[in-house]
Computed example of a mutant assay.
Amino acid sequence: MLEVRDLIVDYDKTEVVRGISFEIKKGEIVSLIGANGAGKTTTLRTLTGLKRARSGSVLLEGQAIQGLPAHRIAGLGLAHVPEGRGIFPFMTVPENLEMGGYLNRDKASFRRNLETVFERFPVLRRRQHQLAGSMSGGEQQMLAIGRALMGNPKLLVLDEPSLGLSPVMCQEIVRVLTELRAAGRTIILVEQNARMALRLADRAYVLDRGRIVLQGRGRDLLDNPNVRTAYLGLATAVSAPASPA
């Protein structure tokens, strides 16, 4: 689905992504984890055209997309849910969702996508007459994901979806992402909550100061002593069910 090779990205003349390479296969969740400043968000912004790489290649289903503007990349099937959600607070829920489906000129398809989003996120149907800014943080995150799904993307790019949410809403995010994977969605996930990210991930990459230093199946990295020490604390063995191989 996506292949990244030797990606180098500067930020304010400082190299923050240093020649990373990774791939994402169709239908899997791939997580990027690492400390603040490791280059995770910069990587996502580069994939979706919000940041320009100095060098390297990004291929979506074999097509080179590096250097294309963000709206072109969105049209090719990459949907970005940014850190902080990026909803339109003074628009209603349906108006926000319409913004996510603006490339879909087929009215019947648009209505089907809208109904699918309402089925997956019942809270959005209940809140559809509200302004988005009046909803809770968790509801806004559901709206941000639903808006991205309105374009029926090939690859869903999520940056810190659990940030600032209660434990109950974090579990709701886990439920949603698990259901999306079961439905065949391909997802790249950046999460500061490394334990949650690795539980969800089919595969994961660990970034440290702009470089990939570890990679493997999510459940294997959960048990990796270096990962547990650096990102999961010194807790005892993780008891949550692991993601499928």
Rank of each mutant, 00 (worst) to 15 (best):
R111F: 04
E119S: 10
T48R: 08
I73A: 07
L234H: 10
Y231A: 05
G84Y: 09
D10V: 09
I145V: 13
I65C: 07
I24F: 05
T14P: 08
D202Y: 01
I24V: 14
V157N: 01
G151K: 15
V176Y: 13
E179P: 10
N226T: 12
F110I: 06
I212S: 02
L221N: 00
R72L: 15
A237D: 14
D208F: 05
E95D: 06
F22G: 00
G216L: 02
E3W: 07
V30W: 05
R112Q: 15
P94G: 04
M142P: 12
T229D: 15
E23A: 13
P153I: 09
L32Y: 01
G146F: 11
G184I: 11
G67C: 08
R112Y: 04
R217M: 13
L214A: 10
A35H: 11
H71D: 14
L156S: 13
G216V: 00
M135V: 14
G138N: 12
T42Y: 02
V81P: 08
L158F: 08
R125T: 14
L60R: 04
T236D: 11
R217D: 03
T229R: 13
Q192S: 05
N224K: 03
L180D: 07
I145M: 10
Q140R: 09
K25H: 09
R52W: 10
V17G: 03
L103D: 06
Q66N: 14
A53F: 01
G86D: 05
E172Y: 02
A64H: 09
T46K: 02
G56C: 02
R209I: 09
A182C: 12
A201F: 06
A79L: 07
Q63D: 12
V117E: 00
Y231R: 04
F90N: 15
H71W: 15
D202M: 06
I29E: 01
V176C: 11
I8A: 14
S21H: 03
A242D: 09
T116E: 12
N113S: 14
F90A: 15
K107E: 07
Q128E: 12
G56Y: 03
A242G: 15
M135H: 13
L32Q: 03
P161V: 08
A245P: 09
K154P: 04
Q141R: 13
M135P: 01
E119P: 06
P244D: 12
